[in-house]
Amino acid sequence: MTYRVRIENADGEVVTIEISADELREKGLTLEELLPPNARIVEVEEVEP
């Protein structure tokens, strides 16, 4: 499974990243732990691999 994640950074700019569930598991991280300081998740969407 892959996630498309929209993130708002500290400057108010919204960027989109895609990350797979396998990648998260391998790194032992959650989506929140990948965020840079002062950023927030705006939207998470599951996409087909």
Rank of each mutant, 00 (worst) to 15 (best):
I19C: 03
I7M: 08
E26S: 13
R25Y: 09
E13H: 11
E48C: 08
E33W: 07
V15I: 13
R40W: 14
L31Q: 00
V5C: 06
E33T: 06
E18A: 05
E8N: 03
R40T: 08
I7K: 00
R25A: 09
K27T: 12
E8L: 15
P49D: 12
A21S: 10
D22C: 11
V5S: 00
E33D: 15
I41W: 05
L31S: 00
A21Y: 09
L31I: 11
T2C: 11
I19H: 01
V42T: 04
D22A: 14
G12H: 04
E46S: 09
E45P: 01
G28W: 04
I41P: 01
E8S: 07
V47Y: 11
V14T: 09
V42F: 05
V15M: 13
V15A: 07
L29A: 07
L35T: 03
E32C: 09
I19D: 00
R6G: 02
K27G: 06
L35M: 07
E8I: 15
N9A: 08
N38V: 02
I7G: 01
L24H: 01
V42Q: 05
V15Y: 15
L35P: 01
I7Q: 00
P36C: 03
N38D: 12
V14C: 07
V44M: 06
E26A: 13
R6C: 07
P36S: 05
E46W: 13
E8Y: 13
V5L: 07
E23P: 01
R6N: 03
N9Y: 15
E45C: 12
E48R: 15
L24I: 07
G12S: 03
R4D: 00
V44G: 01
V15Q: 11
I7D: 00
E23C: 13
V5H: 00
G12M: 03
I41M: 04
T30W: 03
I41H: 03
V47S: 05
G12Q: 03
E46P: 06
E23D: 09
P49V: 14
D22F: 13
I7N: 00
P36F: 04
I7L: 08
A10H: 08
E23R: 05
A21K: 08
I41S: 02
S20D: 08
V42K: 04
A39K: 03
E32Q: 12
R25P: 01
V44F: 06
E33I: 05
R6P: 00
E23A: 08
A39R: 04
I17C: 13
G12A: 02
E33C: 06
Y3P: 01
L31Y: 02
K27H: 06
M1S: 06
